[in-house]
Amino acid sequence: MPNRQIHPLAGQKARPEDLFTKEQITAWYINPQGELKPIKNGTSGHRGPIGQGFSEKHVAAMTQALVDLRTEHGTFGPILPENLEEKPLGPVVMGKDVRFASDLAQQTATEVFTGNGMKVLIPRGGRSTPTPVVSHAILTRVARGEKVEGVIITASHNPPEDAGYKSNGLDGGPNTNTRPIDEKGNYYLAHLEKIKQLPYQRALEKGLVKEIDLLTPYVRDLGGVVDLDLIKKERFAVTPLGGSANGYYETVNEMHGTQIEVVLPEPDPASSNRTYDWDGKLRGDPSSRYVMMAVAGMRESLRVPFIGANDNDADRFGGEDGTGILNPNHVLCVLFDYLAAHRNFPASMGVGRTIGTT
């Protein structure tokens, strides 16, 4: 970005005085101070600072809006396939990232879905779940004729004082049908008494919440789309940067015999192992050279040609090789070229790419 002022902390390790505790986050989430900001969804859902911009009230209101849309239209997403029109509503798959606020928001959202009689599928053991894994779970079930959609509690690569909530429709992708969610969500934000909610323990007792294994089916099915026999010939490294991809690369190794060295593998809800981005924020954008300073020198010490990285909900990627930090758009071009040259992917089809302006 031209002419931007680089913060003096950029690239440095997080300072303890800049980190927030679970107790602080909980207090902001449950008892936000001041006037609440409205719900405003982009294609990556609603995000905001915990408290005024993202609170228990925001999550409850947005969930009730999603419930209404599913009930009225058969989906809260943009597409209702003809073969699913007459099918009954199935459960909602719910994932979350590693943030402290995401644990709280998952419980709130579950209480509202189940308060309206909708079943919720959550990852086994309370673990975090990458956004692509929720998409995979939706598509797998939709292919079986089930009317299943999903939500993910995440603010993506935003700093830890932010939180977010997004929905994926029956096509498994980011929900572009967001205006009705905003309209209904803000109505309920002003009329909280109209939200239906069932205490979490009661929802468990009534069988409306079910824990399932999302990790194993996703990693198993990778073998059908990725040439893992080719990949496992080489050693390389990755880091989840403390995010929800923790445990996934290790499972890829176990299941497919790959040689992936995992760096900073543990969940990091406070972002204590991150380095500051260009503007002094503890942002988890793996395409930033300042964020990637968290793993500076590890590629050389591990003697691998490449180290990859994910953001908090593992739908962004970055990496470093001997030339430095890789531009993700350049990587996508190389991947497309590979598909066309080696996978019989017709080059004439082209490829779609969103363009961000933020």
Rank of each mutant, 00 (worst) to 15 (best):
288 S>C: 09
238 V>F: 12
69 L>K: 10
17 E>K: 06
219 V>S: 02
18 D>V: 04
257 G>R: 07
332 L>K: 08
266 E>S: 11
232 K>D: 08
38 P>F: 04
15 R>D: 07
161 E>I: 04
149 E>K: 07
56 E>R: 14
45 G>K: 04
7 H>S: 11
17 E>S: 10
252 V>T: 04
311 D>T: 09
24 Q>Y: 14
187 Y>E: 03
105 A>S: 15
25 I>N: 05
27 A>H: 11
172 G>V: 04
155 A>D: 02
279 D>E: 13
100 F>H: 13
53 G>T: 00
76 F>T: 01
231 I>F: 09
294 A>R: 08
337 D>Y: 14
86 E>F: 04
79 I>Q: 12
358 T>N: 09
313 D>H: 09
327 N>H: 10
224 G>H: 10
265 P>D: 10
59 V>P: 07
171 D>C: 10
118 M>I: 15
62 M>P: 00
60 A>Y: 01
225 V>N: 06
251 T>P: 00
222 L>N: 01
289 R>I: 12
167 S>K: 00
34 G>N: 08
294 A>F: 11
189 L>T: 09
335 L>W: 12
236 F>A: 05
301 S>I: 02
226 V>W: 03
309 A>M: 14
108 T>E: 08
195 I>Y: 07
76 F>H: 12
62 M>H: 01
59 V>R: 03
306 F>K: 09
212 I>A: 13
146 E>Q: 11
327 N>I: 03
313 D>R: 06
116 N>E: 08
353 R>W: 01
39 I>K: 04
240 P>T: 11
235 R>Q: 13
276 Y>R: 02
173 G>T: 12
194 K>E: 15
321 D>P: 08
201 Q>V: 13
188 Y>A: 06
228 L>M: 05
265 P>V: 04
133 V>S: 08
198 L>H: 04
339 L>D: 08
65 A>V: 00
295 V>E: 05
266 E>K: 14
184 K>W: 05
155 A>W: 00
260 I>E: 09
52 Q>E: 15
212 I>D: 10
230 L>E: 14
267 P>F: 02
275 T>G: 10
238 V>L: 06
128 S>D: 10
57 K>E: 12
198 L>T: 07
1 M>K: 10
95 G>V: 07
62 M>Y: 05
147 K>I: 00
305 P>C: 11
268 D>T: 10
37 K>N: 13
182 D>V: 04
123 P>N: 13
24 Q>C: 01
16 P>G: 03
193 E>T: 08
233 K>F: 02
246 N>P: 00
336 F>N: 10
4 R>F: 11
103 D>E: 14
12 Q>M: 14
298 M>T: 15
88 P>A: 02
355 I>W: 03
150 G>D: 10
135 S>N: 11
98 V>K: 01
47 R>I: 01
94 M>V: 12
341 A>K: 15
182 D>I: 04
109 A>E: 05
104 L>D: 08
89 L>T: 01
345 F>I: 02
100 F>E: 01
187 Y>K: 07
53 G>D: 02
27 A>V: 05
